[in-house]
Amino acid sequence: MSVDAELRQLRAGRGGRSSTDRSAYGFLAPWIIGLVVITAGPIIASLVLSFTDYNLLQDPSWIGLDNFRQMLSDERLHHSLRVTVTYVVLGVPLQLGLALAIAVLLNRGMRGLALYRSVLYLPSLLGGSVAVAILWRQIFGTEGMINRALSYVGIDGIGWISDPRTALYSIIALHVWTFGAPMVIFLAGLRQIPTTYYEAASVDGAGRWHSFRHITLPLLTPIIFFNVVLQIISAFQAFTQAFIISGGTGGPSDSTLFYTLYLYEKGFGQLDMGYAAALAWLLLVIIAVFTAINFYVAKFWVFYDN
């Protein structure tokens, strides 16, 4: 039964529309109050602050578009954009590819599926946490697990997270490792595909690859699209991992200076909160543009069954 039909039935059974509406708002109240007070208020405040010079200690003073003008010549900002885009462009496809591959494997109906699913989902819950970022430092440090393993085969490892050539990739690896959330969504999507399609295909002599390529993939495109949109948005906002792994500096040598980290440094380290607010709005615009492009391109590759 679809959700709509359920709702219709509920409404029919309850009589008075306005009373259900009212109780609906009653139940929504905590969320609405939260949205207005905790989210909407600060959003509007940050928009106003982005046009001011605000050092946190004194009242903000209006400077018009100066903050945005300053961005044009801010080399570290441009650098942080490059770092962040690298992270998104490499991290998101790798993570989704892995998530899809594992989901397809799990979907073949193996024993103990629920256990595997939970275990593989676990990193998603932990991945953004401080504890795992600290664990990552232990694994990728100069005297970490990776290098100890390498030393057994006679290779002198480098400090993966303290060397500017590899630090960003260590964080991308952490991102890829948290493939559980999209994996669960892929699994749900795979379950929706009627098995009759596969039966028909196998009667026609299609192998595994062809079934995947011509049945699974097209029918899964709405789910892939959903994951791509969500993951791009969240990857642009990545903060915790880089903050903990680099000790809050975006180092070594600014190689992990994510956009959000630079924003944080400007706002809280250098007490330039007006500029930081402007940076936050630029990030919003960047994410909006990427998402708009995503939706536009979707017309050409996302296949809706109905």
């Binding site: 100069t142 480098i158 400090g159 303290s162 060397d163 000790g247 180092g251 070594p252």
Partner: peptide
């Protein structure tokens, strides 16, 4: 080397 310094100075 610089990467060790990075770890030491935290």
């Amino acid at each position: 080397p610089a990467s060790i310094i990075t770890e030491q100075q935290e």
